[in-house]
């Protein structure tokens, strides 16, 4: 069992909260205390594309109190197969505004902090990334570019915050939960980005949505201390074949990000 706790802040529930989250408060090891932790929690999801849209939507549905969201650019037709917080009538408009609109439609009690930016050091300063990560208790990494993923990994590990690493490609996904000082970081797992990686790659929304739901479950578990997080293991799935597997993963003693933790 992890020693890590990130759901320390509890916010009392209103009668309306109890009515909305009635069915999940019935989860035996959650109860009202767990729901108060969710309400007191803040989660950074970057970006809100095929993966992050679903992570953010599920966390908003679960009653996480604050979501910090980063997603740049205007909505394009090719986003609509997977970016489920977008709508057809929003084409050409800022994606992050659609994210805000759709999440508040579901949960108007949600506190939202939104950035029309992608969190890579090429776009915004290291200092600003640190500032954005500092607003969250934990991070769910849903970014397409490895510059963003490594920047968030560095900031989260420096600040001692867990980061759920979600990824998909074609009909496969990979997911693991990383906790500073307890598990490998992204640089331990993949010290460098893969050769020839392109922004556009094959994927179905049903695949990104599957791992997005798993990412949201990991965040909920970390906040509420339910169950066992996916730490020190990489869950890999081949949805084309309907198979899943786990790989035991380890820290690298020479990792430039986490060796001193």
């Amino acid at each position: 069992m992890s020693q890590f706790r990130c759901g320390e802040k509890k916010v009392p529930l209103t009668d309306e909260d109890r009515a909305i989250w009635d069915w999940q408060i019935a989860t035996e090891d959650l109860g009202e205390a767990g729901q108060e932790r969710l309400k007191g929690a803040s989660v950074l999801v970057s970006r809100c594309g095929g993966l992050g849209s679903v992570v953010a939507y599920e966390l908003a549905a679960a009653g996480v109190g604050t979501l910090v969201l980063a997603h740049a650019g205007n909505l394009q037709p090719s986003d609509l197969n997977r970016q489920l917080l977008m709508t057809h009538d929003w084409l050409g408009k800022p994606r992050i505004e659609s994210v805000r609109r759709r999440l508040l439609d579901l949960n108007p009690r949600l506190n939202l902090v939104t950035y029309n930016a992608n969190l890579s050091e090429e776009n915004i300063s290291e200092e600003k990334i640190n500032e954005i990560v500092a607003q969250a208790d934990l991070v769910v990494d849903c970014a397409p570019l490895f510059t963003e993923r490594y920047a968030m990994n560095r900031a989260a590990f420096q600040q001692g915050k867990p980061i759920v690493e979600c990824a998909m490609y074609d009909m496969e996904y990979q997911i693991t939960t990383m906790i500073p000082g307890e598990t490998p970081c992204l640089r331990c797992l993949y010290p460098e980005d893969p050769s020839g990686w392109k922004r556009k790659f094959p994927v179905f929304g049903a695949v990104s949505g599957t791992v997005g739901c798993l990412g949201a479950v990991e965040a909920i578990k970390l906040i509420t201390d339910i169950g066992d997080p996916l730490t020190n293991r990489l869950l890999c799935a081949d949805l084309r074949r309907g198979t899943h597997g786990e790989i035991a993963i380890h820290r690298r003693p020479d990792c430039p990000v986490c060796r001193s933790l």
């Binding site: 797992l189 980005d193 993963i249």
Partner: peptide
């Protein structure tokens, strides 16, 4: 080839190798 090896012939950094389900 370039997903397996870097140009200098060492094993690529974007590759995770697992043997019998252990990295």
């Amino acid at each position: 080839k370039n997903l397996l090896f870097k140009p200098d012939g060492t094993i690529a950094g974007g590759l995770l190798i697992s043997i019998d389900d252990e990295a």
